[in-house]
Protein backbone atom coordinates (compact mmCIF):
# COMPACT_ATOMS: atom_id res chain seq x y z
CA UNK A 1 0.00 0.00 0.00
CA UNK A 2 2.84 2.35 0.87
CA UNK A 3 4.76 1.34 -2.23
CA UNK A 4 1.63 1.91 -4.20
CA UNK A 5 1.53 5.46 -2.91
CA UNK A 6 5.14 6.02 -3.82
CA UNK A 7 4.72 4.69 -7.35
CA UNK A 8 1.73 6.91 -7.81
CA UNK A 9 3.85 9.87 -6.87
CA UNK A 10 6.53 8.95 -9.36
CA UNK A 11 4.01 8.53 -12.15
CA UNK A 12 2.05 11.65 -11.45
CA UNK A 13 3.19 14.76 -13.28
CA UNK A 14 2.28 17.37 -10.70
CA UNK A 15 0.86 16.96 -7.23
CA UNK A 16 -2.57 18.44 -6.63
CA UNK A 17 -1.20 20.79 -3.99
CA UNK A 18 1.12 22.35 -6.57
CA UNK A 19 -1.83 22.84 -8.88
CA UNK A 20 -3.72 24.45 -5.97
CA UNK A 21 -0.83 26.74 -5.17
CA UNK A 22 -0.35 27.89 -8.74
CA UNK A 23 -4.05 28.51 -9.26
CA UNK A 24 -4.19 30.50 -6.03
CA UNK A 25 -1.21 32.64 -6.97
CA UNK A 26 -2.83 33.54 -10.27
CA UNK A 27 -6.24 34.35 -8.87
CA UNK A 28 -4.75 36.41 -6.04
CA UNK A 29 -2.93 38.67 -8.49
CA UNK A 30 -6.30 39.78 -9.80
CA UNK A 31 -7.91 39.82 -6.35
CA UNK A 32 -5.16 41.96 -4.88
CA UNK A 33 -5.09 44.47 -7.69
CA UNK A 34 -8.84 44.56 -7.84
CA UNK A 35 -8.64 44.09 -11.62
CA UNK A 36 -11.73 42.51 -13.15
CA UNK A 37 -11.40 40.40 -16.31
CA UNK A 38 -13.43 43.07 -18.16
CA UNK A 39 -10.94 45.76 -17.10
CA UNK A 40 -8.13 43.57 -18.44
CA UNK A 41 -9.96 43.33 -21.78
CA UNK A 42 -10.39 47.11 -21.98
CA UNK A 43 -6.71 47.61 -21.14
CA UNK A 44 -5.81 45.14 -23.87
CA UNK A 45 -7.92 47.01 -26.45
CA UNK A 46 -6.44 50.37 -25.42
CA UNK A 47 -2.90 49.07 -25.68
CA UNK A 48 -3.58 47.53 -29.09
CA UNK A 49 -5.05 50.81 -30.28
CA UNK A 50 -2.02 52.74 -29.04
CA UNK A 51 0.55 50.33 -30.47
CA UNK A 52 -1.31 50.21 -33.78
CA UNK A 53 -0.47 53.87 -34.32
CA UNK A 54 3.20 52.92 -34.57
CA UNK A 55 3.22 49.31 -35.75
CA UNK A 56 1.24 46.90 -37.82
CA UNK A 57 0.57 44.25 -35.24
CA UNK A 58 -0.70 40.74 -35.55
CA UNK A 59 -3.50 39.81 -33.21
CA UNK A 60 -2.65 36.16 -33.72
CA UNK A 61 -0.27 35.13 -30.96
CA UNK A 62 -0.85 38.32 -29.01
CA UNK A 63 -0.58 37.71 -25.28
CA UNK A 64 -1.04 40.00 -22.35
CA UNK A 65 -1.03 38.91 -18.73
CA UNK A 66 -0.18 39.91 -15.21
CA UNK A 67 2.71 37.96 -13.73
CA UNK A 68 3.86 37.75 -10.18
CA UNK A 69 7.54 37.76 -9.41
CA UNK A 70 8.30 37.57 -5.71
CA UNK A 71 6.56 40.59 -4.26
CA UNK A 72 5.98 42.53 -7.44
CA UNK A 73 3.46 42.21 -10.21
CA UNK A 74 4.35 42.90 -13.83
CA UNK A 75 2.30 43.36 -16.94
CA UNK A 76 3.92 41.12 -19.54
CA UNK A 77 2.84 41.59 -23.13
CA UNK A 78 3.95 39.69 -26.19
CA UNK A 79 2.89 41.62 -29.28
CA UNK A 80 3.94 40.23 -32.69
CA UNK A 81 4.85 43.11 -35.02
CA UNK A 82 4.43 42.51 -38.75
CA UNK A 83 5.82 45.87 -39.92
CA UNK A 84 6.61 49.41 -38.87
CA UNK A 85 4.42 52.26 -39.91
CA UNK A 86 6.50 54.76 -41.83
CA UNK A 87 4.76 57.69 -40.23
CA UNK A 88 2.92 57.21 -36.98
CA UNK A 89 -0.79 57.96 -37.35
CA UNK A 90 -1.09 61.55 -36.27
CA UNK A 91 -3.50 61.35 -33.40
CA UNK A 92 -1.45 62.37 -30.44
CA UNK A 93 -2.31 65.74 -29.04
Amino acid sequence: MKLDNLLWRFLRRESSKDVAKNRLKLVLIQDRMGIEPETMEILKKDLIALLSRYFEISKVGLQMDLHREDESIALVANVPITSMKIRPDAQAS
Binding site: S15, S16, K17, D18, A20, L24, L28
Partner: peptide, 18 residues
Protein backbone atom coordinates in the same frame (compact mmCIF):
# COMPACT_ATOMS: atom_id res chain seq x y z
CA UNK B 1 -2.51 14.32 2.70
CA UNK B 2 0.43 16.70 2.95
CA UNK B 3 2.77 13.73 2.67
CA UNK B 4 0.96 12.51 -0.44
CA UNK B 5 1.30 15.97 -1.97
CA UNK B 6 -2.45 16.45 -1.96
CA UNK B 7 -2.65 19.27 0.56
CA UNK B 8 -0.75 22.54 0.76
CA UNK B 9 1.58 22.59 3.76
CA UNK B 10 2.35 25.48 6.08
CA UNK B 11 5.15 26.77 3.86
CA UNK B 12 2.90 26.89 0.82
CA UNK B 13 0.21 28.81 2.68
CA UNK B 14 2.64 31.27 4.28
CA UNK B 15 4.32 31.77 0.91
CA UNK B 16 0.97 32.83 -0.54
CA UNK B 17 -0.36 34.92 2.33
CA UNK B 18 2.92 36.47 3.57
Amino acid sequence: MVKRGDMMDQEDVVDILS
